[in-house]
Design a protein around this nucleic acid. Structure first.
Lengths: 237, 237
DNA sequence: CCAAAAGTGTTATGCTTACACCCATGC
DNA sequence: GCATGGGTGTAAGCATAACACTTTTGG
């Protein structure tokens, strides 16, 4: 920040206050795997272990804004589906002191995930995508957070048609099905899946086809209002 | 607190920190109304307006513990269904400064609600139950919080059999139905309702009957594991 | 015996599930 | 022409929704 003295500013309060952070669970579907972005910690505590990206909430921004800013800073990704997940605040979750973290979960389209450049942040050794089903040991309580995020993602795909958020703008129904199968971790019937997804009305044909090794597949996009529509269905959250 | 100096302790930090509070939405079913407990503010800002009960999170307690403590302090109620709702943190939601609030929602059995004594807290003028469908103007963003809490409660009753949490230990099916009708704000078919609730297996007859003006009704209680069972059904949250 | 709430079954409808074969293309 | 993934329909079972009358008690 410009115009700031070298000597650190000091803020004093009559009662102790916790720090508040946002931590992000970024999901993407890369190489047929459900992937999560993790940062390798460069400093203590948990040096060398992997953790969720995140950071402090600034005093002049809302929680949602803080999450978007972190996302922007660490990945450059802008247009991303984001929702608040849960707030974790056990007194001993960070050995350095009381830190309450508001967690968010984000679904990145494959377009975004490929385009973006990952910046781990200041004290990060490394940053990369991990297969959700083959994670390293995690710092802090981030393992629990990921469990919870996966639950929420599964619930979302079971009850809504929002799975396309993890795909590129144009995709085939088989690709969409394999997203659902990967996330829900169970095989789905092809005919039933197609009927169900198409009946929601959130998809429309683009008219293009995916040319490939075999019979070309129709490409779909989601209709602009799909996200709203799906969310408006009176289901929590 | 004993053993503390008159002169306020001072806590200093290198960066500014928000305050963190928990605010509680306490639902009860009183006199055939869905009721919420509100506190009338004794000081500025929003002096005289009504607000959700709540308070600061202590440094040595988890968020859940803070919520239970507030509940205990303000109502004396102990054995209560409690779950985290959402975290609100717009920078201007409290004119006194940055306050992030983790909200909880609680379902009080009629037993608890009647037994308890309401303590508004230090700077409260008054504290009482309000009809959820006829609320006064609310302080801060508490109106939004209540809207969200009602949504969550409705969702819960639509997808689970947890409505009995708002009733006394023993209750009739008609009483339970009227809880559902009040919360969901729509009439329900008596036969379908009974079949559906009984098929979940969370209720059992006590063998007693409610004697009254007319034909006595069988009394039910929920089987001990009902709450777990219902929550275990893989449905968010 | 009358008023008032408790209690009870059946049918139609739509949704979910299970299941197997032909089609279009690249090589 | 064959290997590969794309694409399609139907029947059975299940859950949901609509609907009206009898039962039991108190007064």
């Amino acid at each position: 920040m410009p115009n700031q003295q070298r000597q650190p500013a000091v803020y004093t309060y009559e009662y102790p206050r916790p720090s508040v952070t946002v931590d992000m669970v970024l999901f993407a579907y890369l190489e047929n795997q459900l992937s999560v972005l993790l940062i390798q910690r460069g400093g203590e505590p948990f040096k060398g272990q992997w953790a969720l990206p995140g950071g402090f909430v600034n005093m002049d921004e809302s929680l949602d804004e803080a999450a978007r800013r972190e996302l922007q800073e660490e990945t450059g990704a802008g247009n991303v589906y984001l929702e608040q997940l849960y707030t974790f605040g056990a007194p001993d979750r960070d050995p350095r002191g009381r830190v309450i973290t508001v967690t968010y979960f984000a679904l990145l389209s494959a377009d975004e995930a490929l385009r973006m450049t990952i910046h781990g942040g200041d004290d990060a050794h490394d940053a990369r995508w991990w297969n959700m089903y083959d994670l390293p040991e995690l710092a802090f309580d981030h393992g629990r957070i990921l469990d919870y995020a996966l639950q929420r993602l599964r619930w979302k795909l079971e009850w809504t048609a929002l799975g396309f958020l993890l795909l590129p703008q144009e995709f085939t129904l088989s690709e969409l099905q394999s997203v659902y199968e990967t996330v829900l971790n169970e095989p789905l019937d092809k005919r039933n899946f197609r009927r169900k997804i198409l009946s929601t009305g959130v998809l429309e044909e683009t008219g293009n086809r995916r040319e490939g090794d075999h019979r070309p597949a129709k490409l779909y996009r989601f209709s602009a209002k799909a996200v709203e529509l799906e969310q408006a269905r009176r289901r929590f959250p």
